[in-house]
Structure formats: C-alpha cells, structure tokens
C-alpha cells in the first residue's frame, strides 16, 4: 500500500506539487530516507534537502527525521508554521 505525501505553503509552490503517492521500498523507511529519496530527483526537489527548519508530520503528528514510515502512512513536509 503506497504512502501519501503532502507538501504545504512555500514548499508546495517550489515543488509545483501539493500531494503524491509513493511505494515504499527497503531503502525508504524513515522521514530522513524519504527526504533524501525525493531530493535525489534533482531540481526543484533539492529544496527539500536545502531548506532550513523543514518540518515533517506522519499521520498528522509532527515527527523527527528518524521516525519510521510504514505502508499507508500520510507523510507531510512543510516550512515552520506562521498562523495566528
């Protein structure tokens, strides 16, 4: 079962994409390895690696880079929040 990946705000605009589906494999098992996999696509995806303070959430909870990802998860990448 693929994972769903969401991108928000300035990151969404930079990538030109709001969401996509991706099949996990043995080399993509955490937020950090997923980020590296996506950044390896080249421009504009290198933004994921370059962005300072990139935040990530799994199933709508903020997580750290070493958090594991499982089949069917909803993973989101976004810049620091600026609401209120």
């Amino acid at each position: 079962m693929p994972i769903k990946i969401l991108y928000f705000a300035s990151l969404r605009e930079t990538l030109g994409l709001g969401q996509e589906s991706l099949e996990l494999n043995a080399t993509i098992d955490s937020v950090a390895t997923l980020k590296n996999h996506l950044a390896a696509r080249g421009e504009p995806w290198t933004a994921l690696a370059k962005m300072k303070n990139l935040r990530a959430a799994i199933n709508q909870r903020v997580v750290n880079a070493d958090n594991a990802i499982a089949d069917g998860d909803e993973v989101a990448f976004f810049p620091p929040v600026t609401g209120g």
Partner: peptide, 11 residues
Amino acid sequence: YLKTRAPFWKK
C-alpha cells in the same frame, strides 16, 4: 502554542 504548533501558513 497555536502560533508555533498549528499548521497554518501566511502569504
């Protein structure tokens, strides 16, 4: 907490 934890972004 809303300002630092709730996922809103202003443009």
